[in-house]
Structure formats: structure tokens, C-alpha cells
Design a protein around this nucleic acid. Structure first.
Length: 271
DNA sequence: AAGTGGACCTGCTAGC
DNA sequence: TGCTAGCAGGTCCACT
């Protein structure tokens, strides 16, 4: 589910409401990707600080350390004053005096991990390999060009890897490459500086647009208030195999790259 | 070092 | 109708 837009939309939908809340109890369901890393009882009585985001991770600061959250493939968060009894896939509840923050995650690739700080393990290690934020001023054509140099991996996989720029997942990688007019199979290191500029612009534009419309709800994504996103209604290529390109009418193609589906328009995107 | 493939887990759907 | 194969928004790890 969640790429940068969905994670950020989620953050914005509950950060202000949970800021200053006092933790009353913690409930754990089935194991997630990693263990919590502390006694749940240790969190009670602590106050929640301002929620921030790094890549697809959320950081929930507490008086002592904080919680690093990841939504994996199928995770979503809700924050509400009243929640129903936990369902089969509700694997983490942080009950506060302002409401319950609940992680719903059927596939359990998500995680909630306590860390003493962002600069200490385990958070430090999990964030160590992350690339630059796409809206950071340092994400420029020359930065991208330099980081792609020498890489023979297809550009789609280089974007997805997250060590150059974060937040671009499978939907937005295909969409951004369409926006830049670049064939996803192009060797990353053979993309010119001028095309890197187009790609930087396209990544930002794609993510910004997705943010504006609340992210993508392909199956079950909802923000922490339970509202869905609408970007899936305006994808140019993602999940549109065989349908006419909105620009040139050529049928959109689907290929496999690194065991993931990639969608592109053979008419609009060139090597 | 960079590239590749498998692993984690559950649910849904297309096709037989 | 019922089963199975294949696919799904992520990313870590082992191996070449």
C-alpha cells in the first residue's frame, strides 16, 4: 500500500491530534516484521511528541525514545477516540487519553519498533541506507546523475531501491518515469544530466499530485481518519496494461523487473 | 560494489 | 462450484 504520499497523508491525518497525548496502554497482536524491542508497559505514562516522517517510516517521539513505524505492503493506521474490538489483522494498539492509534496490517510486513532515538539503534540502522528526501533541495539533477553513474541496473529498479531517493515505490516509479519520458529498462548510468532533470521534476510532480489527492487507494488504503485516496483514478500507466496511453493511445505495456510489475508506454517513453 | 533472487505473510481474483 | 496459480503498495538478506 504505502509509498511516500500514503505515509505522509497518514501522518498529516493524525499528527496534530496525537501530539501531546498520554499513553495509557499498549496492545500487541500477532508478530510484525520486527519485535517491539521494549516492554509494552514501559510506554505507559509517556507523552507523544510531534510525528515526523523519513522515507516511508514514521517516527513517534515519546518522553523516552520513540516508536518507528513502517506500514509494509498492507499496513494502515487509524487514530480515533473510540475503536471497535481488535480484528484479526489489528496487530498494534497505542491507547492514549485522546484516542487509540491502531495498526491494521494483514500481511504483517509492517513494523513498530521502539528506539532510544533516531540516532541510536535500532532506528539508526534501519534509516542508515536511505537516500535523500524527494522534496529536499539537495535532490537535484546533478545529485541524481552522480548517484546513477556506473549503475547498470534499469532505472526503474534504481528508483525503487531507495538508497538514492526515498519514498518512490512501485506505483510512483512507473508514473514518474512516464512523466519523464524515460523507458524503465534504460540502464541507470546511461541517463543524461538533462534527462535526470526531467526525472527529478517528474518524481516531485507525481508525488506532489498524489499528496494533493490523498494518495492511492488500490485496495484498502485509508488515512488515519479512514478516508481513501484518489490518485489511482489518474494514473497514466500503473495498472493500465493493454489500455490506451492517455497521451498517444498506444497500449500500455506491463513487464517484470526484479520480480515486480512495471508499467510503461512504449510510445511516450524512450531509452 | 553491484546485481539477483528468495524470504517474510495473507487475501483476492482470474482461469480452468 | 471449487481449486490453484499468480499477483499485490516493501525491504532485508544471502549469494554471485
Amino acid at each position: 500500500m504505502p509509498e511516500l504520499p500514503e505515509v505522509e497523508v497518514t501522518r498529516l491525518s493524525f499528527a496534530d491530534r496525537i501530539h501531546g497525548a498520554r499513553v495509557e496502554s499498549v496492545r500487541l497482536g500477532k508478530p510484525l516484521r520486527w519485535p517491539l524491542g521494549c516492554e509494552p508497559a514501559r510506554l505507559t505514562g509517556q507523552t507523544v511528541g510531534p510525528v515526523s516522517r523519513r522515507g516511508k517510516y514514521l517516527w513517534l517521539p515519546l518522553d523516552e525514545g520513540g516508536l518507528l513505524l513502517h506500514l509494509g505492503m498492507s499496513g494502515s493506521l487509524r487514530f480515533a477516540p473510540e475503536v471497535p474490538a481488535p480484528g484479526l489483522h489489528d496487530h498494534f494498539d497505542l491507547a492514549t487519553d485522546r484516542g487509540v492509534l491502531r495498526l491494521h496490517d494483514p500481511r504483517r510486513f509492517g513494523a513498530v519498533v521502539w528506539s532510544p532515538s533516531l540516532d541510536a539503534d535500532p532506528a539508526r540502522k534501519l534509516l542508515a541506507t536511505l537516500g535523500i528526501e524527494p522534496f529536499d533541495a539537495g535532490f537535484t539533477a546533478s545529485y541524481l546523475h552522480q548517484r546513477l553513474r556506473g549503475r547498470r541496473t534499469p532505472i526503474k529498479q534504481a528508483l525503487l531501491a531507495g538508497d538514492i531517493v526515498v519514498g518512490v515505490g512501485n506505483i510512483y516509479a512507473s508514473e514518474a518515469l512516464f512523466g519523464a519520458g524515460i523507458d524503465p529498462r534504460t540502464a541507470a548510468g546511461r541517463i543524461s544530466l538533462a534527462r535526470c532533470q526531467r526525472l527529478v521534476d517528474a518524481v516531485r510532480h507525481t508525488l506532489q499530485r498524489a499528496l494533493q489527492v490523498g494518495g492511492s487507494t488500490l485496495r484498502d488504503f485509508r488515512n488515519a481518519e479512514g478516508q481513501s485516496g484518489y490518485f489511482q483514478l489518474e494514473t497514466q500507466v500503473y495498472d493500465r496494461e493493454g489500455q490506451p496511453c492517455r497521451t498517444c493511445s498506444a497500449p500500455v505495456r506491463r513487464i517484470q523487473q526484479g520480480q515486480r510489475s512495471t508499467f510503461f508506454c512504449p510510445g511516450c517513453q524512450r531509452r
